[in-house]
């Protein structure tokens, strides 16, 4: 008898993003939030993960500047953002010069179209 396959969590995340929603998972067993998307909770290994939209509020946890040569597009920021829900997103803060992005800075998530795909980036808030 065929077993039904679950929906792919990467595809679900991307579909929400395409709708303009940044969604993460929450574990029904330990209540912790999970990112990146998975089929099982990496904290308690429960399987009752459900989706919820994030508030979008976060704080820069770590940051660097990738010193790309000017003729290749110039330097850019790469950072990790701790979201209010307790998950960490890789990302980029746009607006300030890349070296002016500081740990502890309050940021807000935004969905941007980049290379034809929706991508989460951050603005100072």
């Amino acid at each position: 008898m065929p077993h039904p396959l679950p929906e792919g969590p990467d595809e679900r995340y991307a579909a929400y993003l395409a709708e303009g929603r940044i969604c993460i998972q929450q574990c029904g067993d330990c209540q912790r939030h999970v990112f990146y998307p998975r089929l099982f909770c990496p904290h308690c290994h429960g399987s009752s993960l459900t989706w919820r939209e994030v508030s979008g509020k976060g704080t820069v946890y770590a940051t660097t500047v990738i010193r790309q040569r000017p003729d290749k597009g110039g330097p850019y920021n790469l950072c990790l953002v701790d979201m209010e829900e307790g998950v960490r997103f890789p990302g980029r803060v746009e607006g300030p010069a890349p070296e002016d992005v500081k740990i502890g800075m309050a940021v807000a998530a935004r969905i941007k179209q980049e290379d034809g795909n929706p991508l989460v980036v951050f603005d100072p808030s």
């Binding site: 940051t63 660097t64 990738i66 790469l78 980049e114």
Partner: peptide, 17 residues
């Protein structure tokens, strides 16, 4: 998608912290 330069950018993030 954020253009990390592996592995240096990961160690740089850790160093910032």
């Amino acid at each position: 998608p954020y253009g990390p330069r592996y592995p240096i950018s990961s160690y740089a993030l850790s160093t910032s912290r």
